[in-house]
Structure formats: C-alpha cells, structure tokens
C-alpha cells in the first residue's frame, strides 16, 4: 500500500500541470477533477499550500486566473518565486536587470532597478528574443561579480498546444555564456520548500508534494525530506517513471486520484 500517505498533515501542490494546463485563448483549462480535489483536501482539514514556479504573471494575477477557472484559492496560500525574488532584492540590496515576462514586472515595481548589479531571469516566453538574452548577457559581463538569479530552473512546461521551453533553458544559456552558476529562487531550491512548510507550521516528514516535474517538484521536495508524488498530467512523460536520479514516492494518474488515495488511507488509519 502507498506509504506516501502515512502521517501526512499537509499537502503542497504544484499548480501548472497539476491543477490546470496553461495556454490557449482563455489562458488554460482546469485538469478534470482537480477543482473538486482541492475542496476535498480542505474538507478533511489537511493543511494546503500551492508551490508554483509560475513567473509569467504576478502572484495576484495568477491567483485571479485560477479563481476564474473555479479554483478555491487565495493569494496568501501561494508560494511563488516572484515575491521570493523581490524579498531577496530588498534583503541583499540588489538592483535587478529584469529578463522576465511583461506581466511579472509589477512584482518589482517598488524595487530600484537603476545601475543594475544582478540579472533576474524568469519565464519570459516571447521576451526570450536574441536581443533580450544578449542584453542580459552584456549586463552580467559588465559586473565585477556577475549575479544571476533564476525564478525556477524548469526545462519545459506544457501548454494546451504542446510543450514550451521554460526558464531553465535560458538560465543555462546565460550560465554557459558567462561561466557562472545561477542562484535559483523557486523549486527545486530547498529554501523555497522550507518557507512553504514554515507558513503551514509543519515538519518535512508531515508533508507531501504533488507535482508533474520529476526533478524540480519531486526531487526538490525529497531533498528536504518531503515525500513527492508524481502526477501523469501536465508535462509528464512515461520516461519520467524511470528517471535515472529521482524516484517518486508515488505515481498517480492525476491530482484527483492522489486525493482519493490520500483520503482512503485516512479512513482506514482511523
């Protein structure tokens, strides 16, 4: 029987590819059963937090979009790299050159961006033109000690019409060009998971992470002692189940099935 359910008090959920698939004219579609799955998690009193690497929009915009799809979710339940990077700028006196999606810019409205001393790269999508990547490269080369901060390092994600290159690809491009290593804010960084747990007041062994990214969701969570369950939705590919480095604690068809298993185990436990 699935051991990933025992002693679970909190559920961390990846969003894109678990709750919904992005893309298309409406900005995406909910994955069947996921809206109800969220409600069921809440009904049984499990703690819940959304852990996303979404950086194509501010956290507020992102949450509004999910609410429109019918999800019961509020902004203060979401751990996202944009606000985390913003905090980092303030704590370390960093002035970013931003290579991000236009819709993420408001997250950095109050941050001094003059005479930049670091580059922040997010999932910039259409903004990943040669000119924009080159500009970020030139800023980095102009710094005595180049600092590159990446909002996640995903390889790709799924939109309704296919897989799309994610920020990690362009982070690697800049790392290679400048011979540097980026600092990742977001999954799979340990701090990111730990800050989500701190918000819930639970220990790593009391939580389970559900995601569609075997490396960043599952591997990242496991490196902090959180169990990881891979869904076969979103960017999932069958080869993910034979990944050379990461073995999930459980594999499920979708979030609805994960919740079925979790709730069933609670009934038998009691």
């Amino acid at each position: 029987m699935a051991s990933w359910t025992s002693g679970v008090r909190a559920v961390l959920l990846d969003v894109s590819g678990v709750l919904y698939d992005s893309g298309g004219p409406t900005g995406g579609t909910a994955i069947p059963g996921s809206i109800e799955a969220i409600s069921r998690i809440r009904q049984v009193g499990l703690k819940l937090r959304f852990c996303t690497n979404e950086s194509q929009a501010t956290r507020a915009q992102f949450v509004r979009k999910l609410q429109k799809f019918g999800f019961n979710i509020s902004e203060d339940e979401v751990t996202a790299p944009g606000p985390a990077a913003r905090r980092l700028m303030l704590e370390q006196g960093l002035r970013p050159h931003l290579l991000v999606h236009d819709d993420l810019l408001p997250e950095f409205d109050s941050i001094d961006k003059s005479d930049p001393n670091c580059v922040v790269i997010g999932d910039a999508a259409e903004n990943f033109s040669y000119q924009n990547v080159n500009r970020a490269f030139q800023v980095l080369l102009g710094l005595e000690k180049p600092v590159l901060i990446s909002l996640g390092k995903g390889r790709y994600y799924k939109e309704t019409d296919g897989l799309m290159l994610d920020v990690g690809a362009y982070m690697k491009a800049l790392e290679y060009a400048c011979d540097i290593t980026a600092e990742v804010v977001g999954k799979p960084a340990k701090n990111f998971f730990l800050s989500a747990l701190a918000e819930l007041g639970v220990q790593p062994h009391e939580a389970v992470m559900v995601g569609d990214d075997v490396v960043n969701d599952i591997g990242g969570a496991q490196s902090c002692g959180i169990r990881g369950v891979l869904v076969r939705t979103g960017k999932y590919r069958p080869s993910d189940e034979s990944h050379p480095e990461v073995k999930a604690d459980g594999y499920v068809d979708n979030l609805a099935q994960a919740v079925d298993i979790l709730l069933a185990s609670r009934t038998t436990d009691q």
């Binding site: 040669y130 990547v133 080159n134 490269f137 390889r155 790709y156 290159l165 994610d166 990690g168 690809a169 362009y170 690697k172 491009a173 800049l174 790392e175 290679y176 060009a177």
Partner: peptide, 13 residues
C-alpha cells in the same frame, strides 16, 4: 552571444 548558449539551452531542455 554566440550560438553556444542557445545550443546549451536546447541540450538542457
């Protein structure tokens, strides 16, 4: 930027 960074991007992805 030369082509290397873009090759690297595809390799990583």
């Amino acid at each position: 930027l030369g082509p290397g960074p873009f090759v690297t991007a595809l390799e990583y992805a």
